[in-house]
């Protein structure tokens, strides 16, 4: 049943992409979706369906807005550092901890960190995130966690946990 839902989803995306209902296009889409589902269906995230709950969905939208704001801020931050003649960077890799448990939430957290101001996730081992930070402002692990992780952690906990 779950696999069939994935299959329909894939065919739907394919149809949106080709934007035509000629039978050749649909046939190729069905075959490719079937292959993709058979080969990769077991790595599809299990918790994804949970997001359809209205409360979670509301927080997902809030997360989307916050995320967009940080992405725009990140761009101006990096642009400023690149264009500035003196290049005010102070980089290094720091270690922070997260309290999120599920794989889905951790994946979203790592990707969000990568797209936000001055930080890039290098590795994720259990609950420890190694983050490359372009401008280190503190040496203390607690403060770093506060700055880097907290801005998304609470929202993601409401969406995915």
């Amino acid at each position: 049943m779950k696999r069939f839902v994935h299959f329909l989803l894939l065919v739907g995306i394919w149809l949106l992409f080709t934007w035509s209902l000629q039978w050749q296009e649909v046939l190729v889409g069905v075959v490719v979706a079937l292959l993709a589902e058979l080969l990769l269906g077991n790595i599809f995230p299990v918790g994804a369906i949970k997001v359809l709950n209205p409360v979670r969905f509301f927080w997902l939208i809030v997360y989307g807005v916050v995320f967009t704001w940080y992405v725009i801020k990140a761009n101006f931050d990096v642009a400023y550092r690149v264009i500035n003649i003196y290049m005010p960077i102070n980089p290094g890799i720091v270690k922070v901890r997260t309290k999120l448990k599920s794989d889905m939430a951790r994946t979203f957290l790592a990707n969000s960190i990568t797209l936000t101001p001055g930080t890039l996730t290098v590795d994720l081992i259990e609950d420890k995130l190694y983050v490359h930070w372009i401008n280190i402002t503190s040496e203390d692990q607690k403060e770093e966690t506060e700055i880097i992780v907290k801005r998304f952690e609470n929202l993601l906990e409401r969406v995915f946990e």
Partner: peptide, 18 residues
């Protein structure tokens, strides 16, 4: 302009994504 691969990736992911 940036000095090493990690800093370059920062520019490449953020600016190029948006």
């Amino acid at each position: 302009r940036l000095p090493d691969i990690y800093n370059r990736l920062q520019a490449a992911t953020k600016c190029v994504t948006l």
